[in-house]
Design a protein around this nucleic acid. Structure first.
Lengths: 182, 182
DNA sequence: GAGGAATGTGGGCATTGTCAACATTCGGGG
DNA sequence: CCCCGAATGTTGACAATGCCCACATTCCTC
């Protein structure tokens, strides 16, 4: 049948992708709690049980969305790092991190919120670690002994992540967060 | 009947308090999603609809738990501030903040996680603001012009909150967070 | 082209939040 | 002292959800 654009085209075409897209939309509109297996299935035009052929549970679907979020975040951090001169790299990464939190509020809250058990999903953990690695490597290339690198990494991560969280939660404006970076 | 220890003793004694206690226990065990109206009612020994005489919705019950959390946090920050010499106050508050996040992980995640719409609950917002005020006032008493006070408040809040979030989410150890404070 | 695997469907069950109607208990005014 | 309104708690119901089971359809390989 159809087999229009997707990769492998079985019955639906590419249900997995369709479900993830629907899930992202639901996430944007109503937060993590609004992301429901049945609603995503409805949006994709399949029965309420079809999603189980692609995700073992609702949690797994949420985790997949979050994993994609971490991949996107890592790409952004990497791009910012590559585009900046060595001396400005840390601040550039911080800005990129804040930009992601501000523009992808819902995804950011899912990725770091308590709705998900990151320990239970290996992909998720890997993707999160990969994003973090960009920051750690950037701190490391500034030099110093191991202890001071570890300390500065924690400080930089804490500051940026805290500001980003506050922005994503609507407690401070993106502009206010930016003044805290320099 | 009974009227054992509680304040006003109607049918149950003090259902509101009983429900909040049960809710806190559920929160500890299984996170925000495990806090269910019906389970809290069960734990308190009442029917599944009794909670509605004290909370208009499940969200309101969650908000009440979170509000209590912010009151406790504020008390801790205040105590830390009072006990420290002026020059060490900021760090003392930071340590208290981190201590709360580490010891009351579940509550902290509820308070700052996305499970709750802080804008929809006035009490919650007030309690959160009161806790934040302790930090802001401490920064302010160090002197400086308004702009630099605002900047330093954002920086201090962002750093401490970020470290606390990472601890509460289990991404760094409390000890690692502590090294980032000084 | 036949058969097994991948994918989607329909029905069903337990749980949950919420609403409505009814029952019980409390406290104050005759 | 008792009676009545208000506060509190109970029972029953409904829709939605996550998940399990048995069954149907479609794909791909041999």
């Amino acid at each position: 049948m159809s087999t229009f654009g997707g990769k492998t085209a079985y019955h639906h075409g590419d249900l997995r992708r369709g479900l993830l897209t629907a899930a992202r939309a639901l996430l944007h509109q109503g937060g993590p709690d609004a992301v429901t297996l049945r609603e995503a299935a409805r949006a994709a035009g399949v029965s309420h049980n079809a999603p189980y052929r692609h995700f073992p549970s609702r949690d797994a679907m949420l985790a997949a969305v979050a994993t994609d979020g971490f991949l996107a975040l890592r790409a952004r951090l990497d791009a910012a790092r590559s585009a900046a001169a060595p001396a400005e790299r840390l601040v550039a990464i911080g800005r990129a991190y804040l930009g992601f939190a501000a523009q992808e509020r819902a995804a950011f809250r899912l990725m770091f919120g308590s709705a998900l058990d990151r320990a239970a999903h290996a992909d998720l953990r890997e993707a999160a670690e990969a994003a973090f690695a960009v920051l750690r490597d950037t701190v490391a290339e500034r030099g110093g002994d191991a202890a001071s690198i570890a300390r500065e990494t924690v400080r930089a991560w804490g500051l940026v992540h805290g500001l980003a969280t506050l922005v994503a939660d609507g407690q401070i404006t993106p502009e206010a967060a930016d003044t805290g970076l320099a």
